[in-house]
Every structure is written in structure tokens, then in C-alpha cells.
Design a protein around this nucleic acid. Structure first.
Lengths: 222, 222
DNA sequence: AAAGTTCATATTGTATACAAGAAATCATTT
DNA sequence: AAATGATTTCTTGTATACAATATGAACTTT
């Protein structure tokens, strides 16, 4: 296809937002971006509109665009949905996974667990991502896969808020092992339950509590 | 806020796509749209970009925009996710619904069942929608609610394809009654399971559904 | 000196002009 | 007459110019 400049720019900005190079709340000046990419403001505006629709950018009428900010409440809600989507992936994967996919999943799991006890956190994170994506794929529902990965992307700018709990890596790996077993053995209900528990932060009860709080308790995160 | 023309136009086109005034595959000529709304092509392009990001419009590089077409595979996958999202709404609603919301839900259910046996199909459809939205709201997860309603909107251009099976209205109403009971009595697991079964198109209904599809749904994935 | 108002500046939103690529038409050839 | 190729026309993609609104600074007023 003939790639327009706007469609080339979107992934670049998206990446910078997702990786945290551009922090939530940063102003996205159209003129500056236009100069930086050596294009006019027109494709920049199209790009920003796309990112806004994806939820990564916030466009305030007549007041310019900023990297999307989020409240704690939003974040909790999105994690809750994330747990459910990943749970659905796991459940469907348990029922639909092919023999070849089983092999790939098992080896990804082995590679992951081999890193437990080491200090290769970044590598573990990457492998962890691969493992999860293999599960998404094994659901054999491309729409579901896309939605799940989109939400993951949208959450990623805020992941640094997550606490690094000591020993979390080891227990996470153990949970993965259980989950992979459940999927490979075709236990759909168990796979779903394990995933929900695995992804959910501090238990759903905490979200229950938050959801009952008046809005003004939870203002925007810087 | 000071509404830009583009942000005014998006809902209009969205509505026409959702209601089927603009059918899937229809070309969306920028110049024609610009003349129709008495604006230049610039805001039209922004509008189309937004709708494309929402999945309602398909922009083919250098070849213009059309109302999004969908394959049967896409449709099945989206319905599968829809069943899961609504199931999640029901589960959370069962745990978080307030007394006031219980009252509203019960009366909506009564209004709905009162129409069974009559020929007020459109009215039933509207009330049915209200009932479902009340459940979404009772989940007390606004992000989930938005995602669910977005997907519903995206599916709606294709909803008229659904079969009008004789007696379906009555059995649908019975399922609603069970579901509402489950939510009001706080049975989260049951509410989720009932909803999944309610939304999922399965068995003979699915075959009926397939048989009504126009040929263009059967094309290979674009 | 502080607060409010007014004016200047900068940035967004829209229109128009121009460039590049795709589709359609017409002519030419077999 | 059919098919292929070139030319023309139309549509999209980008740039630039202009209009409208918000932000910030300076000045006046109390």
C-alpha cells in the first residue's frame, strides 16, 4: 500500500507514549510536532485524532492535545476489564489450542521459569509478554486478541505505578505454570479463574471498595 | 465547551451508519459530504478518521473511505466478546447494584414482560435496550460500560440481520426475568452464566442466523 | 500593592490551493 | 471486436493561508 505520512507518524507517537518517553499530561504542540517530522500540521492533526480515538491522547477543544491522563478510578476499572478479557482468552485457549501452540506455550513457560531467581527483570518481562500473547493467539478470536492487546497498550503508560512486591516474580511464575497446565489439559473454567486471579490487582474486593467512593476522593493522577 | 464542526459531524454520520441509513460498503465521498454539511473537506477528513478509529468506517489508502464491512468470522468473534462483556456487567452488577438501581431494574423488567404477546416489537426493542443499559450501569465500572456500549454500537449495523424467530420474544423475556432475579438476589456467578447463554447465538439459532446473511459477508477476510 | 480589565500574542480550527496517485475513458493494435 | 496501453479526469493527501478563540502580559483603577 501507499503509506500516508499520517499513518507513519501515529505508531511513532504511540510508541513514545506507551514507553513513557512522553509522559501523561505532556502537551502535544502541533507546530512543534510538524517541525520535528518535517510535515505540515495537517497530517499531525490527523495523527492526534487517531491517537485520541484510541484513548492515548486527550484533545481539549481549542486548548490543544495532551498525552491522556487518567484517574485512579479509571485505572482500576481498566485493570478489572483487563482481567476479564485475559480470562476469556485463557478460557477459549484451553478449548481451542492446537498441538503446535501447546508446544510453543510450554517452551515459553520453561524459558520464563528459568529466569526465576535471577536478576534479569527486563528479560523476564519480555518473555512474560510473549507468554501472554501466545495465550491470546490460542483463543483463536482475533477481535478479542486485538481488544486485549489494545487495552494492554493503553495501560502500559501507567504500569510504572505498579508496586514491585518482593517475591512477586517467583509467585507470578508459579501462577503461570498452573495456568499453562490448565490450558494444555483443556480445563477452561480453571484457566479462566486462574487468569482473573493472576491479573487482578490486590483482589476484586479492593475495586468493590473503590467503586463505592464518591468521585471527588479520586482526582486525576498528576 | 466550544464544539468544533468535526465533533458535531461525527455523531451524525455515526448515527446514519448505526441505523443502517448508510449501508456497509457505501462510499463516503469527502467532497459530497463537505457539500452536504456546508464545510470544507478538512473537518470531514477528521470526522472520517475518528469513525475509522471506532471501527465504523474503513479508510483504504488513496482509495477513499467506505462504511466498514465485516466478515462473518469478524461478526462471530465480536458476538463472542459481546457475550463475555455483558456477562461481566451482569456479574459485577449482582455484587454492586444499589437499592435504587434494583427498583429501576425491576420496573424495567416488568415493563418489558408486559409487552410479551403484543406486537409492539419496536417498543420491546427499546425497553430491552434500556434494561441492558441499566445492568451495564449497575456494574459501576464506567470503562466496562463504555466498551460494552461501543461494541453494541459497532454490531448494530448488522443487527437487523438477526432472525425473528417465532416465540423468541417470549423466551427472551423469560431469560431476562431469570437474569434480573439473579442480579437482585446477588448471585453473581449465575447472573454471568445466564447472560452469556442469553447473548450467545448457538445451536439452531446460529444456523438460522447464518442462512440469512447476504453473500458479501462470506468473503475472505480483508 | 492587589485585583480586574483590556490588549497582544500564540495556538487551534477551517478553508483553499496544490500535488500525487488511482480509476476511467479513449484510442490503437491485433 | 476484444484487449492492451496511454491519456485524461477525478479523488485523495499535504501544504499554506486565514479566522477565531484562549492564554498571558501590561496597564489601569481602587
Amino acid at each position: 500500500m501507499a503509506p500516508s505520512r499520517a499513518s507513519e507518524l501515529a505508531p511513532i507517537l504511540e510508541q513514545e507514549i506507551v514507553t513513557g518517553t512522553l509522559l501523561p499530561g505532556s502537551r502535544l504542540d502541533e507546530t512543534l510536532l510538524a517541525e520535528r517530522f518535517n510535515v505540515s500540521r495537517t497530517p499531525i492533526r490527523e495523527t492526534l485524532a487517531r491517537l485520541a480515538a484510541a484513548g492515548l491522547v486527550e484533545i481539549r477543544p481549542r486548548r490543544g492535545a495532551i498525552v491522556a491522563t487518567i484517574t485512579i478510578k479509571d485505572l482500576m476499572e481498566m485493570f478489572e476489564v483487563m482481567a476479564n478479557l485475559e480470562g476469556m482468552c485463557a478460557r477459549l485457549a484451553a478449548r481451542r489450542i492446537t498441538p503446535e501452540e501447546k508446544t510453543n506455550l510450554a517452551s515459553a513457560q520453561n524459558a520464563c521459569s528459568a529466569l526465576v531467581g535471577t536478576d534479569h527483570y527486563d528479560e523476564y518481562y519480555a518473555l512474560n509478554m510473549t507468554l501472554h500473547e501466545l495465550i491470546y493467539k490460542a483463543s483463536h478470536n482475533q477481535y478479542l486478541m486485538k481488544q486485549t492487546m489494545d487495552l494492554r497498550m493503553r495501560l502500559s503508560p501507567h504500569r510504572r505505578l505498579q508496586v514491585r512486591i518482593p517475591g512477586r516474580l517467583a509467585s507470578s511464575s508459579h501462577e503461570h505454570a498452573e495456568l499453562v497446565d490448565a490450558i494444555i489439559s483443556g480445563n477452561a473454567e480453571l484457566a479462566e479463574r486462574l487468569t482473573r486471579e493472576h491479573v487482578t490487582i490486590q483482589g476484586e474486593r479492593f475495586t468493590d471498595f473503590l467503586s463505592t467512593l464518591p468521585p471527588h476522593y479520586l482526582q486525576a493522577t498528576a
